[in-house]
Amino acid sequence: MEVRTIKVFTTVDNINLHTQVVDMSMTYGQQFGPTYLDGADVTKIKPHNSHEGKTFYVLPNDDTLRVEAFEYYHTTDPSFLGRYMSALNHTKKWKYPQVNGLTSIKWADNNCYLATALLTLQQIELKFNPPALQDAYYRARAGEAANFCALILAYCNKTVGELGDVRETMSYLFQHANLDSCKRVLNVVCKTCGQQQTTLKGVEAVMYMGTLSYEQFKKGVQIPCTCGKQATKYLVQQESPFVMMSAPPAQYELKHGTFTCASEYTGNYQCGHYKHITSKETLYCIDGALLTKSSEYKGPITDVFYKENSYTTTIK
């Protein structure tokens, strides 16, 4: 009895394709271990004539594949690729409408935090270190965002349907971005203890939790000093293409032309909904596939993004 075979390709990165001759009487799992086709788990399936010449994702289970996976995804987590594939199996079914010149995501599976993050990423200057993220990001900007969303979920250790947080998501993504040249110098002034300067680099240099107003941050924000008295913390120097200011959701007025974009969060910790506000020729609110415009805006804002380049204080 002759062994019926077909020729397929296996890959971990969709760049390096490895030619395989597979036995049609055995499952993919018996031949390769966990195997995925377009995100779908085909591990328990036997090869079919229609699979001839198709590319299958496999887990990096030998040295060659491990090197290829690390170079593309910059992670050695053995569960990463499987999590990416199972997320992709959902995100490829989502709709990605162009809204006001940006790629958004039609609401499904509690994905409003991903839509808000995706919209924000198209408006701030950011370059990702893992080629996987950078490639998928370019495709997302062009309207094909399924891979990018699935990668975000995998890097953030999230599953489809789980509630997510924009600030946490951005923080994970910033860790995989090139923020080497970003720098922030802060000064804390206390009447009792004097003053202390701190220099922050990388992710810490672009994120701040405690106030939404970048102007206020430049002037000074009140913080408790270690001595128990009130101290003032203010920005001395900022070198970065953008800054992200966050605070627990509270009524906040966004003035046209003073910011790049913002995240609105309605609801409580267990259950809520994100919308995205962007400042173009007027203010726009993007909620999944829905767009509304207004000249002014007041609502429960939790993150505001500002364009920056270089700032030095005039406070002496």
Rank of each mutant, 00 (worst) to 15 (best):
V185Y: 03
F128G: 02
K158N: 04
Y137S: 06
Q30R: 15
V166R: 04
Q197E: 14
G161Q: 02
I286C: 01
Y265V: 00
L114G: 01
H51Y: 07
K95R: 09
T314V: 11
A154E: 03
I286K: 02
Y57D: 07
L88F: 06
G29R: 04
V166D: 06
P248L: 10
K233H: 10
M24D: 14
D77S: 09
G267Y: 08
R184N: 00
T64K: 12
A247Q: 04
F174K: 07
L291H: 14
W107G: 07
L37D: 14
R66Q: 12
N268F: 00
T260L: 15
G29W: 05
G161T: 01
E168M: 12
L65P: 01
Q30D: 14
G161E: 00
P34E: 15
A205P: 03
A136M: 07
G210T: 01
L37F: 13
T64M: 13
Q251C: 10
Q134F: 04
H176S: 05
W107T: 00
K255L: 08
L186H: 08
P60H: 09
G39D: 11
E71Y: 10
D180R: 02
Y297I: 01
C112H: 08
Q195F: 08
S86L: 09
I124R: 08
V188W: 06
F56R: 02
G299M: 04
Q20D: 08
F70L: 14
S104V: 08
A87P: 07
C182N: 00
Q195T: 15
T55A: 09
D63C: 09
K93N: 13
F242Q: 05
S181F: 10
L254W: 05
R184G: 13
K201H: 15
M24W: 07
S295G: 10
A40S: 12
T5P: 12
S86V: 10
C149T: 09
E253T: 14
N187R: 13
S240F: 03
C156V: 06
E52H: 13
K293M: 08
V21F: 14
C193R: 00
T260S: 06
Y57L: 10
T302E: 00
Y96L: 05
L59T: 12
A250T: 15
Q197I: 07
E68H: 09
V243R: 01
M245S: 04
I15E: 10
V203F: 08
K93E: 13
T199R: 08
S263K: 01
F128A: 02
T266W: 04
D23P: 09
A247L: 03
V42S: 08
T192Y: 10
A117Q: 05
S86M: 09
T282D: 05
V304I: 11
D303E: 07
H48V: 12
A87E: 00
N49V: 12
Y297H: 06
T169V: 09
I223P: 00
V160L: 03
T226R: 14
A177S: 09
S240K: 04
N111T: 06
C149A: 08
Q20I: 10
D135Y: 07
V12Q: 09
D77L: 04
L173T: 01
T169G: 00
K280D: 04
L102I: 06
N100V: 13
P78G: 05
T258V: 05
T314M: 14
Q230D: 12
G257C: 05
T76Y: 11
Q237E: 11
H176K: 10
D165F: 00
Y57T: 09
C225N: 02
G82K: 15
T103N: 00
T266C: 03
C193S: 02
L235Y: 03
A262K: 00
Y28Q: 09
D62E: 11
Y28N: 01
A247H: 02
T43Q: 10
K95T: 13
T278W: 05
D63H: 11
F128Y: 08
T5M: 13
G288T: 01
T5E: 13
D41E: 13
T232H: 04
A40D: 14
S295Q: 11
K95Y: 11
D109H: 08
S79V: 05
K54N: 12
L163T: 08
K92V: 11
T5Y: 09
L121S: 05
I301C: 00
N268A: 10
D287L: 00
K307D: 10
T198M: 13
I6E: 02
A108T: 15
G272Y: 05
Y28G: 08
S104T: 15
N129H: 11
S279Y: 01
V12C: 13
E281P: 02
H256V: 15
S181T: 12
Y306L: 02
V203T: 08
S86T: 12
F305V: 05
V189P: 03
G29M: 12
D287T: 00
V304L: 04
T282H: 07
I6F: 14
Q197N: 08
D77Q: 08
T64P: 12
F148A: 07
H90L: 10
T258Q: 12
T278Q: 09
M1I: 03
I301H: 01
N49T: 13
K219I: 09
K106D: 14
Q175C: 07
F148R: 03
M26D: 06
R139G: 10
R83N: 08
S86E: 03
Y214H: 05
E215Q: 09
P97F: 05
K106G: 14
R4L: 14
S279Q: 03
P47R: 04
T302N: 00
R4Y: 12
N309S: 13
K158V: 05
K201A: 06
L163W: 07
H256I: 15
S171F: 15
N309F: 03
G164M: 01
Q251M: 15
G82M: 14
S213D: 14
T278L: 08
Q195I: 15
E168F: 07
H18G: 08
Y36W: 12
V3K: 14
T226V: 15
T282Y: 09
G299T: 01
E281A: 02
L200S: 10
C285A: 06
H90V: 12
D77M: 06
C261T: 00
V188A: 00
G33M: 06
K275H: 08
V160D: 03
N61E: 11
L133E: 03
T64R: 12
D62L: 10
G194T: 03
C149F: 06
C261K: 03
C227P: 01
Y269G: 09
F9N: 11
D13T: 08
K201P: 02
K218N: 07
T27K: 09
I315M: 15
P300M: 14
Q216R: 09
E204L: 06
L212S: 04
V21T: 14
L133S: 03
P241K: 10
R167K: 05
G202I: 00
I45K: 08
T116K: 08
K201V: 11
K191Y: 08
E162R: 03
N187E: 07
T226A: 15
V8P: 08
C285W: 08
E52R: 11
I286Y: 04
Q98M: 15
D135M: 09
T11F: 07
K229P: 07
R4S: 13
S295W: 13
A146Y: 10
L59M: 11
Q134I: 04
G220N: 02
V42F: 14
P248E: 08
G53E: 14
E68Q: 13
N178R: 09
L65R: 09
V243S: 04
I124A: 02
T64I: 14
G210M: 03
K298Q: 14
P47A: 12
Y73V: 04
S171K: 13
H176G: 04
I223Q: 12
I105M: 01
E68R: 09
L126E: 03
Y72I: 09
Q20C: 14
F128R: 03
C149M: 12
V3A: 15
K127M: 10
S213H: 01
Y252N: 01
G164A: 03
G210V: 05
E239Q: 12
K93F: 09
A136I: 06
L119I: 04
E204I: 00
L151R: 05
S86G: 12
A146P: 03
T211V: 13
K95V: 15
S25R: 13
H273F: 02
Y214E: 13
H90G: 13
S79F: 09
D165W: 08
V236P: 03
G220W: 02
G272R: 04
C149D: 03
A150W: 05
K229T: 08
C193Y: 01
A154F: 03
T103I: 13
N268V: 00
V3W: 11
Y28W: 13
Q230H: 07
D303R: 00
K183M: 08
P224F: 10
S295C: 09
Q238I: 03
L235H: 01
C190V: 05
Q134V: 09
G164R: 06
Y73H: 03
T10M: 15
I315P: 15
K93W: 07
L121T: 08
F217P: 02
P241R: 07
Q195D: 14
M170K: 02
V206E: 04
S181W: 15
V185L: 06
K92C: 10
K93I: 00
H273Q: 07
L291N: 08
D41H: 10
N187D: 07
N14C: 10
